[in-house]
């Protein structure tokens, strides 16, 4: 994860004159030693984490059933892989996330842009959007369960509902930041309304869309977990709950760890996306 550029890192760099660009990379270290160097802080911190974990056990000496050692968690992880519970749980959660997010992108982005373009639509929808945004989507879980049952559908719907609202709000706000002088410049060259939308508003909104996607992912993830943890509809969260009920804390920690990795991957993807969409910006939105 450490090779993800932090926000702002690429924005402070001044472009070298093009003639100097070829000489910049030298002297070249081997790719692998460079990678190791990049990852070293992350590896060290992980080692430190494991050490602290053992230290806690040594100091407080808890009941192994309540607080397992890292080795026990690792064993439980391998076991879950071998007995065929890990892979289906991960794919199940991933599937719900992917479908829910895709739906929210396909519906949320165009809808958000349109609402941003039309002051009337904005006035009509804003109270509902913000109301929805303020309300924990979890509160909707009971009624969704009532309608769609305990399966995949429910998870997808909650991921969708959780992700689509922040996404729409970001798109709408992005449209509102469209630069009046860019619009005037485009019009002076004869741009029609479609040009203004496609060439000025949408490109200018991309960083907002990207940060909307980031928000959507993190909110969608919460929505997913709520269903998985409470309803037992399958997926990583459900395995965490099942392990807990069986007092198999090592296994529970193993699944919780997978959950963390899962979340980190999602965040990594969305940060890359956001950095890419914002690469031309002078100021950085984190």
């Amino acid at each position: 994860m450490s090779d993800i550029t932090g926000p702002g890192e690429h924005t402070t760099r001044i472009a070298p004159p093009p003639s100097a660009m070829h000489e910049r990379r030298k002297p070249k270290r081997s790719v692998w030693s460079q990678r190791l160097r990049d990852r070293l802080p992350g590896l060290l911190s992980f080692a430190g984490f494991i050490f602290l974990w053992y230290a806690m056990i040594w100091i407080f000496d808890p009941d192994p059933i309540l607080f397992p050692t890292p080795a026990a968690v690792w064993d439980a992880f391998i076991e879950a892989l071998q007995d065929g519970t890990m892979v289906p749980a991960v794919t199940d959660s991933m599937y719900a996330m992917l479908v829910g997010l895709t739906l929210s992108l396909v519906i949320g982005i165009p809808l958000g842009l349109v609402i941003g373009m039309s002051p009337t639509a904005d006035l009509l929808t804003s109270p509902y959007l913000w109301g929805f945004f303020a309300m924990p989507r979890i509160a909707l879980a009971p009624i969704i369960i009532l309608i769609t049952g305990f399966g995949m559908q429910t998870k997808v719907i909650l991921v969708f509902l959780s992700a689509v609202i922040p996404l729409m709000l970001s798109c709408k706000d992005g449209v509102h930041t469209a630069d009046a002088s860019l619009m005037a410049a485009a019009r002076s060259f004869g741009a029609n309304k479609l040009d203004l939308f496609g060439r000025i508003i949408v490109p200018g909104t991309l960083p907002f869309i990207a940060s909307g996607i980031r928000n959507g992912i993190s909110r969608g993830f919460v929505g997913l977990l709520v269903i998985e943890l409470t309803v037992g509809s399958g997926g990583i969260g459900t395995e965490v709950m099942r392990s807990m009920r069986q007092f198999d804390t090592a296994r529970m920690f193993a699944f919780a760890g997978v959950l963390i990795v899962f979340a980190m991957v999602l965040i990594g993807i969305s940060r890359r996306l956001e950095n890419y969409a914002s690469r031309w910006r002078e100021d950085v939105v984190v």
Binding site: D179, S181, L182, A184, A185, A186, S188, F189, G190, A191, D195, R199, I200, P203, G204, L206, W280, R281, E282
Partner: peptide, 28 residues
């Protein structure tokens, strides 16, 4: 038949120099 040069430059920040110069031709 007319072209405007703006005080605040009004360049598309997401376009390179080349793409910005081409912008007017694209719109036309």
């Amino acid at each position: 038949d007319r072209a405007v040069v703006f005080q605040d430059y009004a360049l598309m920040p997401w376009r390179t120099v080349e793409a910005n110069v081409r912008f007017g031709l694209e719109m036309q």
